[in-house]
Design a protein around this nucleic acid. Structure first.
Lengths: 333, 333
DNA sequence: TTGTAGGCGTTATCAT
DNA sequence: ATGATAACGCCTACAA
């Protein structure tokens, strides 16, 4: 299966290696007859150029490397689905690595990709990435890279993100419009790029609607379930919370779960809005209105942007910033 | 960054290429002193052997190819997480492809992997794979392969699966023990290997508890949401269903959703048990007891099994069948 | 102990 | 129109 080489064909047909190579690439210097014979035979033995040999020569592997915090997550797996789709269509294969939110793994994933000589990277930063030397190196060495979702605070890099401010604003607004006054925020750690914008969206919306921002109603927490539990606990003890906004996909179900485990303490459950890319949010109890991100499109855009860069002759094509919109899905209870 | 070659080192140090190569591999023929110098310098310029060049020589790419129906799915993404973990630990990178349940894409993914010269495959069959010539070719050509979950009806191939019969049996049993008499089954298509065993588990459990199996209470349906809707609709029209067993991860939420949309027709909602790898099943409404598969372990086992094969000198190591257990998680409502 | 040369599969340059 | 050869980066007989 697909083991024939140019040399084999040459020998079988009595041509030289170079003639066969040229015939295969449909070179103008080769006679029609020869081309026919070579092509026919190549087809017969199911010849496929060896990508390894090609890579060695061209210094291109036609593969890209995707680095994400976690693959077992609706948002990221949908993004990867999109990347896969676009990359496949353009003849690229995709390697991927997970950081599991560890900075160290992010660096080593990058190293691995580099060692593998991938043509470029698509990445979303880990939850513990607080300095960016490794990324600056990428930039310095002009290695095509696209960031999505959690992007670094760097200028002149390719980014594909959603309008986090607006998404949060809309989410909080839906709570306000339902008459909620004591709206808490469960937030992802401030270290993530998306966090700041989302927190601002929350604050701006409250202010615009004449509700004072109370910093004690804002809980930053990590992705361990206990952290959400603790945050909810503190909130409930602090005030008569009637609305909760959860600004992270990774935190939504954890928080919902935490709330459910403590709901016996409450006379009524607060209204909840959260970022989520779960397919069937409507099946949740307590019910949650969701802010949905166009994950698949993010993947598509990222991959296309990256491959454009890779294939661009101009070495210094200027970086693009792509901004997509979130959408809101009200629960129907 | 990692661009130095052996040749560069040789030139810089005034050695020949082969001396450097040997020094790097710590060959016994090289003097300590030379080794030191070479190693030190290699380190300094951050030398890394080019995997492409290595591959060309060794005919090994140290990469494996994972082919799954869908990545944006809890079960599969968890499996991939496991594969990634194990592969990474053993120095392999992983490519992956999705079939989206299309036979054609399965074949082309395989071709792509082969073209890429991956060292082996891990795959779970698409929902439309009904003949196996492409897999037999793999076997004939002795290309290391491990199947998981949806495996082909072939002897002497590596498989990693769960005890589907037992999982179903336990699931149905939990319904029976709750006093349910009219227990329907929403099943994945019969074409999948897992389906038969799971249907048998359902039937066996009913029989063992003196409940007659009614074929009209069994609905086979595909993964489009409408199909679940239709199935539920027919079931409700047919009989006073008081229990539903859903034998597929991919069908569980769809069916739950379908039920929810039709529950206004019912005086009480049937008790539900379903295969699911969702992290927070307890948040679902209607509530669902879940049969959980050890997805991460499946990934780990599959990857290790595959890499064992790849690295085995014996060309004809005999295939293994790994059987893992499911677990049941009762909802607490 | 170190160097030379050939080969892995391909393309490209330079003959013929 | 076709062939011989070098080169990509590495390893490894075989020489020295």
């Amino acid at each position: 299966m697909s083991k024939a080489t140019i040399k084999d064909i040459a020998k079988a047909l009595g041509y030289s290696i170079s003639t066969v190579s040229r015939a295969l690439r449909d070179s103008y210097e080769i006679s029609e007859e020869t081309k026919q014979r070579v092509l026919a035979y190549a087809n017969e033995v199911n010849y496929k150029p060896d990508p390894i040999a090609l890579s060695l020569k061209e210094k291109k592997t036609h593969s890209i490397c995707v680095i994400v915090p976690e693959i077992a997550n609706n948002f990221f797996s949908e993004v990867i689905d999109g990347i896969d789709y676009a990359a496949y269509n353009r003849g690229y294969s995709v390697f991927f690595f997970q950081t599991h939110e560890h900075f160290g793994r992010e660096v080593s994933a990058l190293k691995h990709g580099l060692d593998r000589r991938v043509d470029g990277f698509i990445l979303s930063l880990s939850g513990s990435t607080d300095h960016y030397d490794h990324l600056k190196e990428l930039k310095r060495d002009k290695i095509p890279t696209v960031f999505f979702d959690r992007v670094p605070p760097m200028e002149d890099v390719n980014k594909v993100v959603v309008d986090n401010f607006h998404g949060s604003y809309e989410g909080v607004k839906s709570l306000v419009l339902k008459g909620k006054k004591n709206i808490a925020l469960i937030s992802s750690p401030l270290i993530l790029s998306v966090t700041k914008e989302r927190v601002q969206g929350y604050k701006a919306c409250l202010k615009d609607h004449g509700i004072e921002v109370d910093e004690r109603m804002i809980k930053y927490c990590g992705f361990q379930p206990e952290e959400s539990y603790q945050a909810i606990k503190e909130l409930l003890a602090y005030k008569n919370v009637d609305g909760i906004f959860i600004n992270s996909d990774r935190l939504a179900l954890n928080s919902l779960d935490a709330l459910k485990r403590q709901q016996h303490l409450l006379d009524h459950i607060p209204e909840i809005v959260g970022f989520s890319n779960m397919k069937h949010v409507n099946l949740l109890d307590p019910p949650m209105t969701s802010i949905h991100q166009p994950a698949w499109e993010i993947g598509i855009k990222s991959a296309n942007l990256l491959i454009d860069q890779i294939e661009s002759k101009l070495k210094d094509i200027k970086p693009s910033q792509v901004l997509l919109k979130t959408s809101i899905k009200e629960h129907n209870k």
